[in-house]
Amino acid sequence: MDRNQLTKWFKAPTKMAHKYSLHAVYFCTGCGVIEIPPTITARWDAERFGVIPAATPRHANLFLITGYVSVKTLRAVIRTYEQMPEPKFTVGFGSCPINGGMYWDSYNTINQLDKYIPIDGWIAGCMPRPEAIFVAVTHLWTLIDKDMADGYKRYRKHYAQYRANQEQVLGELEWPPLFQSEREG
């Protein structure tokens, strides 16, 4: 943890501020919901590292999607992701968002979450232990430091592709495209 190194604060204050105030939207789709309370409460105390749960996506900059993503949930996941202010970081939690996991052949879940929204990091496991969240957060710090947590930039760049993928699963979307010009281009 380089939070106390003053030189780093002078060099890249924005990055440091983003690193140490990760306010998270925990999108608990089904499983994974039980790993969150011990993480944020007295057992593991995520607030030590500036990670606290946010009430709405508007306040957050970290998006944690835990467990399988059904088609119905995907709609909400996309809405929530789009409502978060940039810069924003996403972490898929558990094997289901990565490749479908045990639901890989289900008619009602999607297999690869990063076809629909950009993901900056994954936590594998079914389920991962709460400590894994801390591992993910430290990795995310490194990625932010190296400018590699750029999911939101990718989303903007390849929005047409993402939108097409979303429409393929969900059909006609009821909200207008987030980035108008990129889609036409």
Binding site: R58, R75, A76, R79
Partner: peptide
Amino acid sequence: QADNYAAGAA
């Protein structure tokens, strides 16, 4: 106003 927070719902 159509893009407000509603827990992900429309």
